[in-house]
Write a protein that binds this DNA or RNA. Structure first.
Lengths: 190, 190
DNA sequence: TCCAATTGCTAGCGCCGCTAGATACGCGAG
DNA sequence: CTCGCGTATCTAGCGGCGCTAGCAATTGGA
């Protein structure tokens, strides 16, 4: 049945269209603007079609988040690869992390703030998330000292996450961002 | 006119009742359960009454957050006051901060994650928020070294905030929390 | 050619935050 | 003491949300 194959391909294409539409809409107008009606209009299908692809709106957001994990991991890999030395790697990877969060705030939110029910213990989410975490881990390893590597990595990550979220919600003045980032990098790489 | 005074007192009382109802409901059932209809039922008034006290639901959440700032500041002050030495103070204040966030997650969210439009530049919010920040600052001062005190404080704060939020959204395993907190404290107090 | 299953649609449910317009109440003047 | 007015509060409803039941059209196999 070649027709069935075509059907499945078209279906997959439509599913990607939903994710892309959600992503674009979130990036340009924020997640509040991403409603099922609006998404349906965007892909030129009726609202219930969305529910034949995803369990609900949360699942759509989760799909956007999954794409985000892949992007972030790639950005971190490339940042570490081009760093001159271990200490510089920490600084570069931190900068890449923050840059990602600032350039795609809506996607960062979907990844780490909203969509709590992400399948963290199944399928492909762990793949890219773990890739990103592993990259962070390898970056931190040379400067971790005697401390447990995983704990240091997670704590460093938390520092980055805190800087990003507090700044974006207006709790930290944007102007001093570089100085704070420098402090964090310094405290974790000496 | 004594009657007018009584009226105003009753009005203030009702306003406090709204805030308390919102706070309690958020703590026990989460912010999703805090709807204007539910709040109105709780205080035994009709829905529009809420809007004669607050501009909207966000403003009610902001009021809850303001109370939270006061509580948090008090907790931090008491933690630092009872610490034996500067290094211990850092650990104790950090523990108090995290404990507050874990014991009142909904309020912590209102303070630092939701309700972005808090009047950070007016009235009494800065008072208690600044009190908390100042306490954090004084705690960090003895161990800040040559770095800019404000930057170090903000970065340390970000670390705490990141630990709290990532753990609460399931991104960090709860089991290793103490170890991560120890790493953070250590990196900021040596 | 006809049937059955799949696919997508229209319509609507119960909820949300918020508001317009009507009503009941209480104070001050005559 | 009564009356009129301003205020306080209510009922009812608007538009929009996520989601779903149930119908219509299309399609592939017997």
């Amino acid at each position: 049945m070649s027709t069935q194959g075509r059907r499945e391909r078209e279906r997959a294409k439509r599913e990607q269209a939903i994710i892309t539409a959600a992503r674009d809409l979130a990036l340009t107008e924020g997640w509040d603007a991403v409603t099922t009606r609006r998404l349906a209009a965007e892909i030129e299908y009726s609202q219930p079609v969305l529910y034949s692809h995803f369990k609900g709106k949360d699942a759509i957001m989760a799909a956007v988040a999954v794409e985000g994990f892949a992007e972030l991991a790639t950005a971190l890999v490339s940042a570490r690869a081009s760093a001159a030395d271990p200490r510089q790697a920490v600084a570069d990877v931190a900068a890449a992390y923050v840059a990602f969060a600032q350039q795609r705030p809506a996607i960062y939110d979907a990844m780490f703030t909203l969509a709590v029910d992400l399948p963290f213990a199944s399928q492909d989410v762990p793949t890219d998330l773990a890739r990103g975490f592993a990259e962070l881990s390898e970056t931190v390893r040379p400067v971790a000292g005697d401390d447990d590597l995983e704990a240091v990595t997670e704590t460093f990550w938390s520092g980055l996450h805190g800087l990003v979220t507090l700044m974006r919600s207006g709790r930290l003045r944007r102007a001093d961002h570089d100085r704070r980032l420098a402090v964090l990098v310094d405290r974790f790489s000496r």
